[in-house]
Amino acid sequence: MNCVINVEQLQAFYVLEAQGKRKIIKAVNNVTLSIPENEIYGIAGESGCGKTTLLKALFASIDPPLQLFGGKVNYRINGKDLNALSLSEKEKRELRWTYISYIPQGSMSVFNPVKKLKRTYLNFLESHIRGKAHRDLLSLAHQHLEELGLSPQILGAYPHQLSGGMRQRIAIALSTLLKPKIILADEPTTALDVVAQRAVLQLMRDVQQELQNTIVLVTHDMGIQANIASRMAIMYAGKIVEEGPTEEVFIKPLHPYTQYLIQSLPRIGDKTTRKSVPGSPPSLLDPPLGCPFHPRCPQVFDRCIKETPILDQCNPNHKVACWLRRD
């Protein structure tokens, strides 16, 4: 398996200082992860589990109050590993949008409301491609939109004239203009209805197939993960608790948390009562000792309260961090 990103024991915490007290929020706590190339990789978990922070770290965008406490994020470029977190701002800027691009959360509201979309596209292209006339840049944008099956006429519209689903797709199109090797997408389908959601997923799948690149998709919606990701990781309280091929995770979930997530999904044709995970998500300010899931876990035993399980191979290809799976 060739990997494009290797994350080694990454620790990124938010450091807040309020009223003379120092608070540390452990948003990404010892994450080790390998993201393979030419695949859609899903990261799932509830809000506040650190998945957005992990994406920010993958994008090498660690700004205060977020601080790096250890670990590496290696990009693999032309067969060589490059620690993205040690690069200078200028070097990072050169990689962005050509090697790695980022679709932030709520990206349908990223466009300037008083400018036509054309201006946003031109601004973007001008800052990345030097020495080309406006007309050439614009035709590049037109061509790109057409390739993705979107109408180039949209560039003449203001953002508010388009629906959320359309704006989201324009944002995705913008992030893929320079054909990056890696696209990080943060909840691109949240706040869209099922039909618009499907159109967005369809577009992402097309983009991936055309560019043969890697898309890292963060969403809490397990249905979408099943739909599009070929491999996925489940995050809980700043840690990865399960990782494996999507099919295996869905058919044979190993972690009790994953089991809850999958069992609680309603299906048409089935009215039997579904239970959601008991309790509420832990605070990352003061995560529980031992396994972070133990206060909500129905199968908790002594060891879970004292020791933190590490993410370890269970089957070849399928990893889990749970004491139940250790002999």
């Binding site: 099922v194 039909v195 959601q197 499907r198 997923l201 919606d221 397990m222 249905g223 979408i224 099943a226 739909n227 999507t246 099919e247 869905f250 999958i262 999904l265 299906r267 048409i268």
Partner: peptide
Amino acid sequence: LLIESIPQPDPHQQ
């Protein structure tokens, strides 16, 4: 169309 668009929690049924 609406029913078909629900992301099914099953990797085989897409």
